[in-house]
Design a protein around this nucleic acid. Structure first.
Length: 481
RNA sequence: GCCCCCAUCGUCUAGAGGCCUAGGACACGAGCUUUUCAAGCUUGGAACACGAGUUCGAAUCUCGUUGGGGGCACCA
């Protein structure tokens, strides 16, 4: 690799960052960092009608959240800026004019209405819809005159009518397309903005992009792009077209069939580590059996050679598992930091740090999300608000009332309240009462937590402390008829 | 309709002619452990779309069929 690696992620600011976009951005980022190159963020806002307020800021903050930091882009101006296409219109005009001068493009004065009629006729006649090249042969002088008289126009590229183009894609290998199936694509719209096709080529060239890594939906238009590079006498970058992310029904991943916005996942409590790891594995793998990767490890291992060709279904089950795995990789301190604000917003305050760390240690193995510490372990922070109904029926039999009171009494009298002593008090009481330890354990768990599942009862009791345990046992006993 | 791409367990995938009676992971079933739930460990079921060729030998190469997806805008 002689030229320095420079890649870009070029979203259009039409909404939230899509998980497919996240993966495209991630692959570009991984490729750049792996090769010690630059990762550029470019905003493709050439469609004024689809512009969404705040979308750029949102895109950037989501990318940053995921740990995908760009080297150049809006707010991080490098020598190739500006990085927002609507601020680069003069470049597109320059090169559109250059193409016209080289007669590789022409002015087209067809109205949208005419274009639409032509298309309708073609569809009715079952021939491929394409521009009929009505304006392709207008003499340059005449076109110039009409343009100057104020007639609305677009600029279209001139595609050869015969021949074919073959190019090499880093992921798909050789791809061949006949020129005749290519349209005389609009390059410059009548509002003076470029279309994607012109803008992407001009900017990728001007920004010295070495590798164009983008979604597969661009594969069919790549020959047009290459043609533009050639028309302008520019070096053609390498292309790598990524397989699509799919809905469970195998169609292109879309809203409708689940969440596609990265923000949604973030809001649901997914860890960025898990989401990044997951999305990286949708179409790529390291070639061995490792599955849990950090961003740095991904950078180290990533290569385009190991990117697959077929689409991948976005399957949430595995994401959940990865979230759990990454959560367990975090230190208790880190988890405590993340949990604290969630506690606060749940109306729980004044939790001692040390106590919180112990709760985390105890619950860590049985949670998938950070919020689960509260979802599943609320009783560590406040008295149970309700009691599992089936558990009540099953465990809070009449005799449980006496047993719980007895246990409360024994524990209250106990000289020490530690794991070992708690267990032996409970077990010897069970012996005395002539019941299995579990006949005492289950009602106790329910009394203390309101639940029938949870961590080891004795650990739970030790952590809750004598006072709380005794209080909750008596409260529960009162509830038993 | 035309063009392009793709095709291994339900899902993510390993596999680059013999290592494959096809491996791993998620999910699912069973068991162990256990006061419960998890976790962990053991274990089960589960796939090379089909058909021709090439070859001593094909999941792997070629062609075709079928299926799926994407593209065909003054959207990206």
């Amino acid at each position: 690799m002689s030229k320095p690696v420079r890649v870009r992620f070029a979203p259009s600011p039409t909404g939230f960052l899509h998980v497919g976009g996240l993966r495209t951005a991630l692959y570009n980022y991984l490729f750049a960092k792996h090769h010690k190159g630059a990762f550029v963020l470019r905003i493709e806002d050439t469609d004024q009608s689809r512009k969404v307020e705040g979308a750029i800021e949102n895109l950037i903050s989501t990318l940053e959240w995921a740990g995908i930091h760009y080297d150049e882009g809006p707010g991080k101006e490098g020598k190739f800026g500006p990085y927002v296409q609507s601020q680069r219109l003069h470049h597109y005009h320059t090169y559109a004019n250059e193409l016209i001068k080289r007669s590789k493009a022409y002015y087209c004065f067809c109205t949208p209405q005419r274009l639409d009629e032509v298309r309708q006729k073609q569809i009715a006649a079952k021939i491929p819809p394409a521009y009929d090249r009505h304006c392709r042969n207008i003499p340059p002088e005449e076109a110039q005159k009409r343009k100057e008289s104020g007639e609305p126009f677009v600029v279209r590229m001139k595609v050869p009518m015969t021949g074919e183009m073959t190019f090499e894609d880093r992921i798909r290998g050789k791809v061949t397309i006949a020129h005749k199936v290519l349209d005389d694509q609009v390059l410059l719209k009548s509002d003076g903005f470029p279309t994607y096709h012109l803008a992407v080529v001009v900017d990728d060239h001007l920004m010295e992009i070495s590798h164009v890594i983008r979604g597969e939906e661009w594969l069919p238009s790549t020959p047009k792009h290459i043609m533009l590079y050639q028309y302008l006498g520019w070096e053609v970058p390498e292309f790598a077209h990524l397989p699509l992310l799919l809905n469970p029904d195998k169609s292109k991943l879309s809203k409708r069939q689940g969440d596609v916005a990265v923000e949604e996942y973030r809001a649901k409590g997914y860890l960025k580590e898990a989401l990044v790891n997951f999305v990286a594995f949708l179409g790529w793998n390291p070639g061995d059996e490792r599955e849990i990767f950090t961003l740095d490890e991904l950078i180290k291992e990533f290569s385009l050679e190991r990117v697959g060709k077929s689409g991948a279904v976005f399957n949430i089950e595995k994401l959940n598992w990865l979230n759990q795995q990454h959560l367990r990789l975090k230190s208790n301190e880190e988890i405590a930091d993340a949990l604290q604000p969630i506690l606060t917003s749940a109306g729980i305050s004044g939790v001692e740090r040390n106590y919180l760390l112990k709760v985390i240690e105890l619950m860590k193995e049985r949670v998938t999300f950070i919020a689960d510490f509260i979802e599943l372990g609320d009783y560590f922070f406040r008295d149970p608000l309700s009691f599992d109904e089936k558990g009540v029926q099953k465990h809070w039999r009449p005799e449980a009332k006496r047993n719980l009171l007895k246990l409360a009494e024994r524990l209250e009298q106990a000289a020490e309240f530690r794991l070992g002593s708690i267990e032996s008090i409970l077990r010897s009481l069970a012996d005395e009462l002539g019941v299995n330890a579990s006949a005492l354990i289950h009602p106790t768990r329910l009394a203390l937590s309101g639940r029938v599942v949870g961590p080891s009862l004795f650990h739970m009791m030790e952590l809750l402390g004598k006072e709380t345990v005794v209080k909750r046992l008596r409260r529960a006993a009162e509830m038993i008829k």
